[in-house]
Design a protein around this nucleic acid. Structure first.
Lengths: 130, 130
DNA sequence: CCTTGACTTGGAGTTAACTCCAAGTATCAA
DNA sequence: TTGATACTTGGAGTTAACTCCAAGTCAAGG
């Protein structure tokens, strides 16, 4: 598969795909005789996983570390697992944070719906400062 | 309350508090005779709300827009409500995205736990490229 | 009176993660 | 053969959201 095909299939720009490879987030992709990338199914699956992680906010750095360990063989299994566990923790607490915000948003929206004008309307007294 | 007190109480740096005020995320805080900020309880409540939204990833831009409308009075109530609803949608879909990632992470971790070495170990064949 | 320390402002610098660009090469249709 | 198109690389530019800094002011302690 060419970079354009992978880009379309997965939904990451060619620039992003090349960038990911440069920084080691994607293991080096094989090239044909004239240096053009030829992605395998395996590459695609990995890229798709990376996309999923990135869109959830997992940091590039953590993923690069994981790939690096992956390429060092079986002695790194435990370290890799730890990375995954750590990232899961981070995701979980991030989701909790978002759910707290969600609740507050919903509460405010409800205030607006009941025409009970919300508390921060008191801030209006500050309007003359603008 | 001084900026140092608010900073400590809420957990945002004085620099961030000044920055938020500069860009209009916090309505202008009153100053004493010598130009030093004197935060009210109201200010604090608002800042705390902003912190909650920001830590959930709500964009500064949307919050600034909300504050701006707030200071324009009651004709903007509907517009403000729409902003809140839009942000709630965004948060929801973001949470869903993260939960998908969470599931994949958990699945991978389980693979590691059962010593069923994970699929991407096939990527190891690329290790010689490094 | 002088220094210390907390504050003020406007503006420059930083970080993560892209995103774009220039210069060069290869392939392919006309 | 000659563009046009798609790719290559390394490096520069962009964006959001801070974070830091320099230069200045002011109140309080010694």
């Amino acid at each position: 598969m060419t970079i354009a095909e992978v880009s379309k299939k997965i939904g990451l720009s060619p620039d992003t795909l090349r960038y990911y490879e440069r920084i080691g987030l994607i293991p080096r992709v094989n090239r044909n005789g004239s240096g053009i990338r030829n992605y395998t199914e395996e590459d695609c699956k990995w890229i798709e996983f990376i996309k999923c992680m990135r869109s959830a906010g997992v940091q590039v750095e953590a993923l690069v570390e994981y790939v690096t360990l992956l390429q060092q063989g079986d002695e790194t299994i435990e370290a890799r697992k730890q990375i995954l566990i750590e990232q899961r923790e981070k995701l979980l607490s991030r989701i909790e944070e978002m759910e707290r915000a969600l609740e507050r948003l919903s509460f405010k929206i409800k205030e607006y719906e009941t025409k009970l004008i919300p508390a921060e309307n008191k801030l209006k007294r500050l309007a003359h400062n603008l």
